[in-house]
Nucleic acid binder design. Structure first.
Lengths: 274, 274
DNA sequence: CGCGTGTTTGAGCTGAGTCAATCCGCGTGG
DNA sequence: CCACGCGGATTGACTCAGCTCAAACACGCG
């Protein structure tokens, strides 16, 4: 079982335990040029004919069931994974009990870049829904990148972008209120869905309130309350995990940290005179 | 003025304004093999004779005066900078006024990796004391890395390590109290000084309380109070910016987020007997 | 229908923020 | 030499956003 350290119970191998799922007896051919998110992923910038080189690199794609761990922290780095469809959370765990959700990954995102430093993964990666990934053997990627400088550049850019994203997250954690963090989170999700061809205004949250809270440096109760507030402000509409953004400009004003228009003019008077 | 976008007022060019400073008329020869921190820096892992290739790559080293900006956010990326001596803070600025200190850099650290994604710098880099850096033209570095895979690996590792460090910072911001953050910060500095050959127990903080606060997601008053607390606990001794760590084990226990021994002896029993 | 997991809402508490006064070290100029 | 001023650091008093604890609710599932 070369690519990946998953055991059969986690993966959707010809599935005894889930006979209802379709079974793929022949390996799924992985062609980047057919992939809808290749423009966001590793092959970015490669001319079309080079994609076939990548095709030779990338192993047969793998299915991961909801809740299963694609990566466990401390696994040795053998493969990076490009998300093809579905979504994941990555989570960094403390020595003590607690950890934090580091990122939510969707199609086109590459998992495992943080393992390159130590050749061991530092985060768990858990599927938030049934998902598919393209395994990329790291050492073969390195070799191929030597011959295709654009590929190397692409990898460099992915890593650098991850650094920048983390910078922005730190900015959020340090400067924004709970409500503003939620706004920033929803606006960010919206942008990511747009760049994948989905609606900017309506989408489904794949993660629990608890995961959102962990990602945003809050408690889940605070997430609930802040969401409720955004709803009463008429900025979003919420039904469970289904989100509809009603007032995008207001949302974006909030995520920029503007204090204005946080409290509505004369909505309710929270003054307490018992 | 090719390498770097500094103007003459920021740099220590043949200094009219500071006639007491020594003047280097001939460019300072930059040889990685003579550099005390080459083991932490880009050339890590390169066999000795390859260092000379790097020597051809790296421009004449530059002096930056305390308070001057080596990098301004939004500058186009032409050069990375390896800190040779001294120290820097990098700072990400919001659209609105506020920003955060992203990192404190010391000898061997490489500045500007976050610019690779967009080919523009995203952070300012300000010298915390009179410092020297080795400029590394990025595009030439890319070319050289093609011929010396070890160099490419070294760059990959540097970026990946930066991602991991940010992960750990997020963990700190999300899970630790003010006091624990300070402990984590001091213990981290201590480790970095050790790996550069300095004392683990006594060192000088090069940054203001305000910078520390920004880095730790706190206010400067809180930093002061938390430091005072660490002092009364007998864990550190402080004289202005001079730090002495008196009880390293306690410091490390704190940074791990252990609740124990946070409050002095008379702690409360969290046992619940309903 | 009961059960469990995830979500929402309420009530009170607290760690860190805010505002403000003071202190300290240091360079400058008299 | 000392008085002065200034930026950074410290300390105190008060406030509040978000936390904790707790209860209720919604929903899917066997």
């Amino acid at each position: 079982m070369m690519p990946g350290q998953l055991d059969a119970t986690q993966l959707d191998l010809p599935a005894r335990s889930h006979p209802a799922m379709p079974i793929h007896l022949k390996p799924l051919v992985t062609l980047c040029e057919d992939c809808r998110v290749s423009g966001l992923c590793l092959p970015t910038g490669l001319p079309v004919h080079d994609h076939s080189c990548l095709g030779a690199l990338i192993g047969p794609r793998m299915r991961v069931r909801k809740g299963a761990a694609l990566i466990n922290a401390n696994d040795p780095l053998t493969t990076l994974y490009a998300v093809r469809c579905g979504s994941f959370k990555t989570r960094l765990n403390n020595v003590e009990g607690q950890g934090v959700v580091i990122n939510f990954c969707m199609p086109g995102d590459v998992l495992g870049l943080d393992a390159i430093a130590t050749e061991r993964h530092v985060c768990d990666a858990i599927a938030l829904e049934d998902s598919e990934v393209c395994p990329v053997p790291y050492h073969r990627l390195q070799a191929l990148a030597r011959d295709f400088p654009v590929l190397q550049q692409s990898l460099n850019r992915l890593m650098s972008r991850e650094i920048v994203r983390e910078h922005e997250r730190v900015l959020m954690l340090c400067n924004l209120t709970a409500e503003q963090r939620l706004a920033s989170f929803l606006a960010g999700l919206s942008r990511r869905y747009v760049s994948r061809g989905y609606s900017a205004h309506g989408f489904m949250l794949r993660m629990s309130r608890e995961d959102m809270a962990s990602y945003l440096g809050l408690r889940l109760e605070t997430v609930c309350r802040s969401l409720a507030r955004l709803r009463t402000l008429g900025i979003v509409s919420l039904h469970g995990r289904l989100v509809e953004i009603l007032d995008m400009p207001a949302l974006m004003a909030l995520e920029q940290g503007s204090d204005e228009l946080k409290r509505k003019p004369a909505q309710k008077t929270p003054c307490s005179t018992p």
